[in-house]
């Protein structure tokens, strides 16, 4: 399958290892990955802040970039950005009175998947250790991001993939479905409420005794990780793609204070 990677702006600029991990996973499964060079951002920050007029060129650029190449499906290592492409792009075009763009955006959205959706629903990955050689001997917990959970209905796809990684130990996160408080510009406009939500999230994460919190959205992970860092916690965050891409021979670089688990044997 020929798969177009939508890296997303935050991963492209701040977390390139997540996009590289995504490429690695897909290539390991024997697929061809392309990176449409015109891509930039889904425009969600503009839309969710009410700047529809400013969002329109960003949306139009995304549609154009993902029409420029031939491919079977597009994938984003983000529930939020994939949901924006699928749900918001046609709405923005409609609101700005561009029916042509609306139809084209819908077509691009239709071909776009979030990474765990693509892996589980399309590519049939059920056992990361067996199918991808995934190996990550650490105790982790997992935060399901809101947009993946509620807009894309990802369910346990990301969590099930993580469970099937060799050597991993998963600690259940209490009140996992509570928002971490990021919310894009909400974190700045309503910084106090956002911080109060974050404090509860990080307290729950630290309470699990995990060394690392995994998730599927770099933005939420940056928010949670930024809070953990400020609190002086040794716990860090990591995108699940990097955990799936990690192998015994080529383990993922873990920046925080992570101990190796001893409960399981290496595959």
């Amino acid at each position: 399958m020929r798969i177009a990677l939508f890296a997303t702006c935050i991963v492209d600029a701040m977390y390139p290892s997540t996009a590289r991990a995504t490429v690695s996973i897909l290539e390991r499964l024997g697929h061809e990955v392309i990176f449409p060079g015109g891509q930039a951002c889904c425009g969600q920050m503009h839309v969710n802040s009410g700047y529809f007029k400013e969002a329109l060129p960003v949306v139009a650029n995304h549609v154009k970039a993902f029409e420029a190449d031939e491919y079977d499906v597009a994938v984003a290592p983000s529930g939020s950005c994939a949901a924006s492409v699928k749900h918001q792009h046609p709405m923005v075009a409609r609101r700005c009175g561009d029916a042509g763009l609306e139809a084209r955006a819908a077509a691009v959205g239709h071909k776009t998947y979030e990474l765990s959706q693509l892996l589980v629903d399309v590519l049939g990955v059920t056992d990361a250790a067996a199918q991808l050689g995934s190996y990550f001997p650490h105790r982790i917990t997992y935060h399901p991001s809101c947009h993946g959970m509620r807009l894309l209905r990802l369910g346990d796809r990301q969590l099930d993939l993580l469970r099937s990684v060799g050597g991993i130990e998963l600690a259940e996160l209490p009140e996992a479905e509570q928002c971490c408080g990021f919310g894009g510009t909400f974190s700045m406009k309503n910084a106090d409420v956002s911080s109060a939500m974050l404090a509860d999230k990080t307290a729950n994460i630290c309470g699990t005794g995990a060394d690392l919190c995994a998730g599927g959205d770099a933005s939420c992970l940056m928010h949670i990780g930024g809070g953990l860092s400020r609190q002086g916690s040794g716990v860090t965050t990591m995108h699940f793609a990097e955990i799936l891409a990690s192998t015994f021979e080529d383990p993922a670089a873990v920046t925080g204070d992570v101990r190796l688990t001893t409960g399981r044997t290496a595959r």
Partner: peptide, 8 residues
Amino acid sequence: YASSLCGA
């Protein structure tokens, strides 16, 4: 703006 748009 008093929402993180979590969708709950």
